[in-house]
């Protein structure tokens, strides 16, 4: 699609959650668009190692795999140390790693709530603090967070998930205000139903109901979310900051 238009040439990006789904699609698309990448995953795997080897050879970019648990502040610090030791300007941070767990409001336990916020919110804020400190020095940067339409619309059974993603929206807008003086833009995407492992286990009747609400009549592909991330990461969006962009195929 964009093989001959390298929108991220000369840029370096950090992407979390690269193992699968939207994160994997984003890593692939960024590499095709000329970005060097710190590819963050929780666990090492042979498949992943092989994938980035082939990808970096095919696209002639550098990809550094980083394995760490975003919920462990010590591991975050070690990862940041590694990134800093590479002595590169960081142009883009994409926070994709996240989790979902469905439960009705009255059935949601405080432990579930804390766990989801730990993964989807606290850890991302901490990580973004460290990375944007690196960006401050070069006075330019783009941070892209992943929220969800369930944070805006609400969604039955997603009390903890939708709340954590709504928190991301508030954080995105405040970071945009605070970091703009340093040339750093901060935006979030709010995907609708995207074909990933996260949605693969949804009951068929729920999926049918959701599909009926989508004007384009199909569930989104990870690549389509990655394409919007690419836009927000590139200089094409140099005047866009503090925005939440829905990518939902027209859900009503």
């Amino acid at each position: 699609m964009t093989s001959n238009s390298k929108l991220l040439k000369g840029k370096t990006a950090i992407i979390t959650g690269c193992l699968k789904g939207i994160g994997r699609a984003t890593m692939d698309l960024f590499a095709q668009n000329g970005a060097d990448i710190f590819a963050c995953c929780q666990f090492e795997s042979e498949e992943f190692k092989h994938h980035i080897e082939v990808l970096s050879k095919d696209t002639c970019v550098l990809i550094y795999p980083l394995y760490f648990d975003l919920c462990d502040s010590e591991q975050i610090k070690t990862a940041i140390k590694f990134i800093r030791s590479a002595k590169r300007n960081i142009d883009v941070l994409v926070n994709i790693a996240g989790m979902t767990q469905d439960a009705l409001f009255h059935m949601t336990t405080i432990d579930q709530l804390k766990k989801i916020f730990e993964v989807n919110f606290f850890s991302q804020i901490m990580f973004t603090q460290y990375v944007t400190k690196l960006m401050l020095q070069n006075k330019t940067g783009s941070v892209i967070n992943i929220s969800s339409i369930s944070a805006i619309d609400g969604n039955m059974g997603q009390l903890s998930y939708s709340s954590s993603k709504a928190a991301i929206i508030g954080a995105t807008k405040t970071m945009s205000i605070e970091l703009a003086p340093y040339g750093i833009r901060v935006n979030a995407l709010a995907p609708g139903v995207i074909k990933t492992d996260m949605t693969a286990n949804l009951p068929i009747d729920i999926l049918d109901k959701q599909l009926g609400k989508i004007k384009l009549k199909y569930f989104g592909f990870p690549l389509e979310v990655a394409s919007s991330i690419l836009f927000l990461a590139s200089d094409m969006s140099s005047y866009i900051t503090g925005q939440i962009i829905r990518i939902d195929g027209g859900m009503q």
Binding site: M1, I177, G220, F221, F231, M236, S237, I240, I247, G250
Partner: peptide, 28 residues
């Protein structure tokens, strides 16, 4: 040109799953 770039994005296949939106290009 910054407004134009957003129009290019929306016209291109990069935005294939975006519809019904209003995108602010306003520098915050």
């Amino acid at each position: 040109s910054e407004i134009a770039d957003t129009a290019v994005f929306l016209a291109s296949d990069l935005a294939s799953y975006i519809t019904g939106q209003v995108i602010r290009v306003d520098g915050g």
